[in-house]
Simulated scan of single mutants.
Amino acid sequence: MTKIVVMFILVFAALQVGACSRNESETLTNKKGTPAFHGVNDTSAGSSQGFVAIIKGATLADYRTATIGKATDDYRYFTRREWSETRSENGKVYVDFSGWFDGKRVINGLAADGVEVKFVIEPTGEFYVAMVSGLQGNAGAGITRHPLAQIKPVLESIYSNKPITL
């Protein structure tokens, strides 16, 4: 019973939201935030994917000017946006955002059709951006992901509505 009460308090008492990379060499703040499980304003997903809605309604520590969902929705270089969530046996939840370009862009010297941002939500409710990858769509072969060494330049481009160029 105590565990349920503690989890209830952790989930519903979170008032401030933030996220970052776990990579100590990353330039984002290395404090993880707790997602606000209440007050999420997501009408586009109809809350059918609960953790997607939570991430879309959250803000990143270094980018408090807009929610993650608003920033990705307003980014003019994405012609298609996709969200998905998966749960692991160890209690972690992975929320993936894929933003697709009209045509190719060169990212880290490779032609990219889009980018993917991977969020991890820990069982404690803390979340962070774990990885950003360049995406290449391969007809008949699926999607190839190329992890990028730097997260912050991609996020800065999205939040400032400028082309992603690395």
Rank of each mutant, 00 (worst) to 15 (best):
K3V: 14
K3I: 13
V5I: 13
V6I: 12
V6P: 01
I9Y: 14
I9Q: 09
I9C: 13
F12G: 14
A13F: 13
A13C: 13
A14S: 15
A14Y: 08
L15S: 13
L15H: 12
V17T: 14
A19M: 06
S21K: 00
S25I: 04
E26Y: 02
T27R: 12
T27E: 09
L28W: 01
K32P: 15
T34M: 15
T34F: 15
T34R: 15
A36Q: 10
F37S: 07
G39P: 02
N41R: 10
D42F: 05
D42V: 03
D42E: 08
T43F: 05
S44W: 08
S44F: 10
S47D: 09
S48P: 05
S48R: 14
F51D: 04
V52F: 01
V52H: 00
V52P: 05
V52T: 08
I54H: 06
A58T: 10
T59K: 12
L60Y: 04
D62E: 14
Y63N: 04
R64P: 08
R64D: 07
G69Q: 04
K70G: 02
T72I: 07
Y75E: 11
Y75R: 08
R76M: 12
F78R: 09
R81A: 14
R81W: 09
E82V: 11
S84C: 02
T86P: 04
S88D: 09
E89I: 14
G91V: 12
K92F: 12
V93S: 06
V95T: 03
V95S: 03
F97D: 04
S98H: 11
W100E: 00
F101A: 10
F101N: 10
D102P: 02
G103W: 01
K104H: 06
V106E: 11
N108P: 05
N108R: 03
A111E: 11
D113M: 08
D113S: 11
G114D: 07
V115L: 10
K118L: 05
V120I: 14
V120N: 04
P123T: 13
T124N: 15
E126P: 08
Y128Q: 12
V129L: 02
S133A: 13
G134H: 03
G134Q: 00
G134W: 02
A139W: 09
A139N: 03
A139K: 08
G140R: 01
I143R: 07
T144R: 04
H146N: 09
A149D: 12
A149G: 12
Q150K: 11
I151W: 02
K152Y: 09
P153S: 01
L155Y: 07
E156F: 04
E156P: 00
S157A: 15
S157R: 03
Y159H: 05
K162P: 00
P163L: 00
